[in-house]
């Protein structure tokens, strides 16, 4: 009897060892050597959290000359058992083929409702490809994952991601597109000039208006000179602009407060509105220009998209937050 118990234990251990792997090497399979070790690790870590937080098993495969990338992705999805590490069979597989210069995001059956083909085509073409064109493959993957997280978050808030029936595998859902790897960024900026206003609130309104029109021109007058220089080297994608507009849709201007001191000003939302980070402004030539450089240095976002300060970063906008204290990570709390 004891030997049978030991055998069962051994079989159970063996099953545990051979169950769908979720270690880093399985999450990112870089056969085409497009990523360095640090980038692979970063993507794997991020996707590990995606599995932990949203139960989505998201694999990345780079492979040279896959033939028909659509068929390859469907076959590879099955071979890798993508979605196997998820309790609900939620699987995604990104395939990048540098030889054919194509990319495909294959969506498993269980996630077809959450990530329809149109959404996948949107994130590929409006978010991932601009980064790929700039030669930043890892950033393109991560930037796309960010939008996937946002979408999953919205799905969880609405009806949840869990389904009654577990659905494994994929049936060809998703989208593929030209990857434009290293093709160079396209400067499809709008010609419309958007200048800073005489009040921070008006400048912010103009900024959102420019984003709604997908005007990613880094030299717009609403930005401080330092911000303009910073943005020149950035990849600003249409999807990022859409995302900012979407994120701040729930941040009500009427609840925001403007704090100013000398040539600096801050628009701050109530502390309870965790997703609404503050905006920094600097007076340049008599108008309030948006300072995104300090925002970039001082503000961080958690996995749930709530903002916090990067501790230890000094900036000239501290005056607007003296009535708040920061916790160990940097999340603001009201002083009692």
């Amino acid at each position: 009897m004891r030997s049978i118990s030991q055998l069962l234990l051994f079989v159970a251990l063996l099953a545990a060892c051979t169950s769908p792997a979720t270690d880093d090497a399985e999450l990112v399979i870089d056969t085409a050597n497009m990523l360095d070790a640090e980038q692979r690790q970063r993507i794997a870590t991020f996707h590990g959290f995606l599995l932990l937080d949203y139960d989505i098993d998201y694999r990345v495969v780079t492979a040279a000359d896959t033939g028909d990338i659509d068929s390859y992705a469907a076959s590879r999805f099955a071979a890798l058992e993508a979605g196997g590490a998820s309790d609900n069979g939620h699987g995604l597989l990104l395939v990048i083929d540098p030889v054919q210069d194509r990319v495909r995001l294959e969506v498993g059956y269980a996630l077809e409702g959450t990530f329809p083909d149109a959404f996948v085509a949107y994130v590929e073409q409006r978010q991932m490809v601009p980064f790929f064109a700039a030669g930043r493959v890892a950033d393109g993957i991560l930037a796309t994952t960010e939008l996937i997280v946002n979408r999953a978050d919205a799905a969880v808030s609405n009806a949840g991601l869990e389904s009654e029936i577990r659905l494994d595998g994929s049936g060809g859902a998703g989208a593929s597109t030209s990857a434009r790897l290293g093709a160079g960024t396209e400067s499809s900026y709008s010609d419309a000039e958007v200048s800073a206003a005489t009040s921070p609130a008006a400048t912010l309104a103009r900024y959102f208006s420019a984003l709604r029109e997908r005007n990613g021109n880094p030299s717009l007058g609403i930005y401080t000179p330092a911000t303009q220089r910073m943005l020149e080297n950035w990849v600003t994608t249409p999807a990022q602009m859409d995302n900012v507009v979407r994120s701040y849709r729930g941040c009500h201007a009427e609840t925001a407060k403007i704090h100013s001191s000398g040539r600096y000003a801050v628009i701050r939302y109530p502390i309870a509105e965790r997703q609404c980070s503050p905006w920094f402004f600097e007076k340049v030539n008599g108008v309030w220009a948006l300072d995104l450089t300090m925002l970039q240095r001082a503000i961080r976002f958690g996995r749930d998209n709530s903002w916090h300060f990067e501790r230890g970063v000094e900036h000239p906008y501290v005056f607007a937050f003296t009535d708040w204290r920061l916790d160990s990570i940097g999340y603001p709390q009201a002083r009692r």
Binding site: S71, A74, D117, A118, V120, A121, Y122, Q125, G172, A173
Partner: peptide
């Protein structure tokens, strides 16, 4: 148009996969 194109190509790919 992107949405329509994605739907069409997605459906074509589903047809190919299911045919295979």
């Amino acid at each position: 148009f992107l949405e329509l194109q994605a739907q069409l190509e997605g459906t074509e790919n589903r047809i190919n996969v299911s045919r295979m």
